[in-house]
Design a protein around this nucleic acid. Structure first.
Lengths: 69, 69
DNA sequence: ACATAATTCAATATATATATTACATTGCGA
DNA sequence: TCGCAATGTAATATATATATTGAATTATGT
């Protein structure tokens, strides 16, 4: 499984749109991040964490060699 | 205190240069990140974690409103 | 099946992370 | 003090995250 943002997002009952507004970016960017298409900045990661009430490790941690694409 | 990268780095006895090489970026970028001058990508954060044997939360977590610049 | 909301996807534009080169500064051992 | 290694910093260049617009697709409820 790519990342856990989507799961955390629905857990707090937010749509991509609403999450995007909460963290101050666009819906498309949320979509791309959830799909693992790229590589958000630390600041953005943190804001997503705050919005869905998770920590960095919970949302973004991957073990060293885990998913080699 | 800005971030904990520098501390973790010296704990594993690496110079900025060596850490940079280990994670595949330049020394200057490490310097800027340690000084809190910007905002690395998630991928880079993870690689730094692996190199110094810490987790994202240990190195990069900040509470919501903590250091407002 | 239809209507609507939620999400994915593409193209181009902009902001910014990172590279590169080079020089300045600091600290430490001889 | 001298010399060197580690670090800080600045200018410009490049790669890429993110914005923007808009269209296509997928889900959900009726």
């Amino acid at each position: 499984m790519e990342n856990k943002i989507k799961i955390a997002r629905v857990q707090v009952d937010l749509t991509q749109q609403q999450l995007a507004e909460k963290v101050g970016i666009t819906r498309q960017t949320i979509s791309l991040i959830e799909k693992g298409k790229y590589n958000p900045s630390l600041k953005l990661c943190l804001e997503i964490c705050y919005a869905v009430n998770k920590t960095l490790d919970e949302l973004f941690w991957k073990e060293k060699g885990s998913d080699e694409k």
